[in-house]
């Protein structure tokens, strides 16, 4: 399931709904990305996420489909907010349910690495001195590339 909208959401509610009634999934793993109040030494008062009305969701759906092909998953929930977000508010929620915890942990990790580098959002941090558009983070790109290496070495890592 992929939800991309401007609505604020409670990560706890998302997790509760993912867990509810689940009797075959021994493992449910979730991650919540939260808007920070400081970034690169600057105070952040507002984070604005720009997106594309159709392309953004389409790319996230592709990422979910990749995860489902790589691991045997019972459910995937990706909720990503766009628009104006205040420090402390949730930006993204990723939840994965599977029979066992190993697949859930790995799939959630994979999904976040892919979202950070391939989900079409553009972040603008607003602070006391004005706003700045953020550049891609090389650390995120390096982390995302390790999943390709894992495929190359037969998944031994």
């Amino acid at each position: 399931m992929v939800i991309v909208d401007e609505q604020a959401f409670e990560p706890g509610d998302m997790l509760a709904r993912l867990c509810a009634g689940r009797v075959d999934s021994g493992g449910v793993v979730s991650f919540t990305g939260v808007c920070r109040g400081r970034s690169n030494g600057r105070v952040v008062t507002t984070l604005t996420l720009d997106s594309h009305p159709t392309y953004t969701r389409a790319q996230i759906v592709l990422i979910e489909e990749e995860a489902r092909r790589r691991w045997p998953l019972h459910e995937v929930v990706i909720r990503h907010r766009h628009g104006r977000i205040a420090p402390g508010e949730a930006i993204v929620f990723v939840g994965v349910a599977s029979a066992h915890r190993r697949e859930a942990f790995e799939a959630a990790d994979y999904l976040m690495d892919q979202l950070k580098t391939r989900a079409p959002f553009w972040k603008k941090e607003g602070g006391e001195a004005g706003s700045v558009w953020l550049e891609p983070n090389p650390v995120d790109l390096e982390r995302a590339s390790r999943w390709s290496e894992a495929l190359t070495d037969g998944g031994r890592s």
Partner: peptide, 10 residues
């Protein structure tokens, strides 16, 4: 037609 800078989401 959409023009998009490098992505920085998540």
């Amino acid at each position: 037609v959409a023009f998009m800078p490098p992505i920085g989401g998540g």
